[in-house]
């Protein structure tokens, strides 16, 4: 079995890529995708630990996070569509009605 360290570094790299994406990207849809990357980093952690421990709770947690990510995407895209109908943009820079 591969040592746990590899998985941890992979998930941390994925987490950082996601976090940088959230902070630097201006397109809301890309930001949502970056958030999915963060959640996938979490899933890698959970499944890797679960395999090492031989304990199923981590995998169950990962399944719940997948379901949660899907729900978040649904609500998120719904809000983006409502926003786009009124403003015809999906760029963060143009969200300036409320002081950011």
């Amino acid at each position: 079995m591969m040592p746990i360290g590899y998985y941890l570094f992979l998930s941390m790299a994925l987490f950082l890529i996601g976090a940088i994406g959230v902070i630097t990207r201006r397109n809301v849809i890309v930001v949502l995708m970056s958030i999915e990357l963060i959640l996938n980093a979490v899933n890698i952690n959970l499944v890797a630990f679960s395999r090492i421990f031989g304990d199923v709770a981590g995998q169950v947690f990962a399944l719940f996070i997948i379901a949660d990510a899907a729900a978040e995407a649904v609500v998120g895209l719904g809000i983006i569509i409502a926003f786009f109908r009124n403003r015809e943009t999906v760029l963060e820079d143009e969200m300036d009605l409320l002081k950011w």
């Binding site: 959230v22 978040e72 809000i79 926003f83």
Partner: peptide
Amino acid sequence: SNEAAMKYLLLGAF
């Protein structure tokens, strides 16, 4: 309201 929801969603999900 749209804009508030958008900001809440992005920062909240993050």
